[in-house]
Design a protein around this nucleic acid. Structure first.
Lengths: 341, 341
DNA sequence: CGCGGGCCGGAGAGCGCTCTCACCCGGGAC
DNA sequence: GTCCCGGGTGAGAGCGCTCTCCGGCCCGCG
């Protein structure tokens, strides 16, 4: 018996179970329409031989890959400084895994990679794509749409021509910002400053919008554009204090920025929250809980966001027809009260 | 001309170029042994039709997938709190991309997933695997070895039965720790404490070993086991101060822990570095640079580590025979002087 | 008791590619 | 001029699987 070391094929299982390839295939793929005793016999043969279907052969005929690409455009190193993508990935991974799909990770580093990614997606190696592209001017989403692969975006894509037939999942950035500013206003604060994120990202722009909606007409000196980093926020905070030394609250566009603001406030001798109340955004635990004082912030469930993106995509892939069409899913945020406001 | 929407095949290209499938195949795969004019004609046909090879069909015959799995065992949420894996992934991704390999990400969540991962790898869907498993008792590495897939480990696997035929890439944790402690000793500090990481991880254990090698015989009260988190380090630091109020230096097993220690030292009125000098490990920039005072620390190039892992694996996959056998690659660390020591 | 229908299982044709092998043709040696 | 050699090219056989038919068997009904 010259068993080769190579993996057993359907044929081998069929021979061992004394049935045809077709029957084994049926059993392996759910076993519908095969009588119980045969199912049992095939199952045992599969077990004994340690048979694992050859995905390549299967894909060749089904044109399905049970694989989804996750594209993370990473123009700046920053995106990796916070665990944002890690959490999304986790959510995505869980959802894909539970539906027996593989996750193919595509990290892009500047324009050169765009063509590569587009070609890969157009090449039909995966059934769909989950795309993170945070910047207004990013050509990647367009390229990907062109590739004709079912796609779900993470975060609202910032296209000037409106959200064309696009499916996306986003946090309720605007609503969260409104809640944050309302809290501060409710505490009697009237000179509420805002340290924004990079405004070419829709999340930052939406948070600013939320701030403005609650503030109504306000001193433009209360708003400084920053970049989601502690360092940037420190500079922004200093500028705010110079412009309006009487400010009594700060809404920072994310927790990292809030931590930078906190540092400057401490350095300038302002007490938090007595003199200046501070609210962040994200509820990034290591930052928000460990900061001094612990941060009041707007929580968004990032892992859940990833999970929902994956679920949405899988659903689109499943039903061959009758898509419920484009549209966005906006996930609610919740305000978490701690000591800073 | 009823062009279907489906993607063009080799056959179609061959027809258009007026050659056989075999010739097109040759051209697509490098074009050796095909005369120039024909190469040109085929190239043009490929271009015009937008032909992209079907990877499934190719894999079916070559038994190669040009895909590598990255397995990240994630028993704790902690691993995602720091950008460690993100950086490794980036390095890996760059290296794989430049060799036209895909990255299949497998995140595991507890024991249940182990079998799934093992089955996937054994299923021959990928050519090799890059595995991160940090814990001493983790059965995953064993399972993966059993799957018979070429594998490179990230970090020295902690097996009691010695490092059997295993290829791994690791930082010089022990050497880095030695350098850190020597620096402190060189500053005249004699009561140098150590806040360890979780000692079931080889990196933490190796750092402790390095500390011990330089310290020689020392007060065991100077060492407290912790968990790589700021919170854990705060508790550890308090305990150290209670045990040995006269300590004059702290070597923390990573930067996150150092930042926790710093906070407690400040709270207890110790000046850094005057009263207590502090050294961290990792040189995780947002933490190390932003901390107050900026952290003196041991740098390890995590992205490079990922790149080297990938390179090692690809090299093993390439040469069919004549592996240079098992063994570890240990990457050097460098001491970065800032203000805290 | 005979016939029709339904269900189960098998045969076989590909999916798109690679790779071996055989063939063809031109050029050099005899 | 014939033979041989070798580089280029084409023909064709699969790789391992799915899926459509099709045939056979059994059951129910007339």
């Amino acid at each position: 018996m010259t068993e080769t070391a190579s993996r057993p094929t359907l044929e081998a299982v069929a021979a061992r179970a004394g049935v045809s390839r077709a029957t084994v295939s049926r059993v392996v793929n759910g076993g519908d329409g095969v009588r119980e005793p045969l199912v049992e016999r095939v199952r045992r043969a599969v077990e004994e031989l340690g048979y694992v279907p050859n995905q390549a052969a299967r894909s060749l005929v089904t044109k399905r890959h049970d694989a989804v690409a996750v594209v993370i455009a990473e123009p700046e190193t920053r995106v990796f400084a916070d665990p944002f993508f890690a959490l999304q990935l986790r959510g995505i991974s869980k959802e894909l895994t539970s539906h027996d799909n593989q996750l193919v990770l595509l990290l892009t580093e500047g324009r050169d990679d765009h063509a590569r990614v587009a070609r890969y997606l157009a090449g039909g190696h995966v059934d769909g794509a989950l795309v993170f592209s945070l910047h207004l001017d990013d050509p990647l989403p367009g390229l990907i749409q062109g590739a004709g692969v079912p796609t779900v975006f993470g975060g609202r894509p910032g296209w000037s021509d409106g959200t064309r037939d696009v499916v996306y999942v986003d946090s309720d950035n605007r609503g969260g910002a409104r809640a944050a500013v309302r809290l501060l206003a409710g505490l009697g604060r009237t000179r509420i400053a805002h340290i924004t994120g990079p405004l070419d990202q829709t999340s930052a722009a939406d948070r600013l919008d939320g701030y403005r909606e609650v503030m109504g007409v306000h001193d433009p000196r209360l708003v400084v554009e920053s970049d989601f980093t502690p360092g940037g926020a420190e500079r922004a905070m200093r500028e705010l204090l110079d412009r309006r030394p009487d400010l009594d609250a700060v809404f920072a566009a994310n927790d990292l920025a809030a931590s930078g603001a906190l540092r400057v406030l401490r350095e300038r001798g302002r007490r938090v929250p007595e003199d200046v109340a501070v609210v962040g955004f994200d509820d990034m635990l290591p930052v928000a809980e460990q900061s001094d004082p612990p941060l009041t912030t707007v929580r968004q469930d990032i892992e859940e966001m990833g999970r929902i993106m994956a679920r949405l995509l899988l659903r689109r892939l499943d039903r061959s027809v009758a898509d419920e069409g484009p549209g966005g899913v906006v996930l609610p945020t919740t305000l978490v009260r701690r000591a800073s406001a």
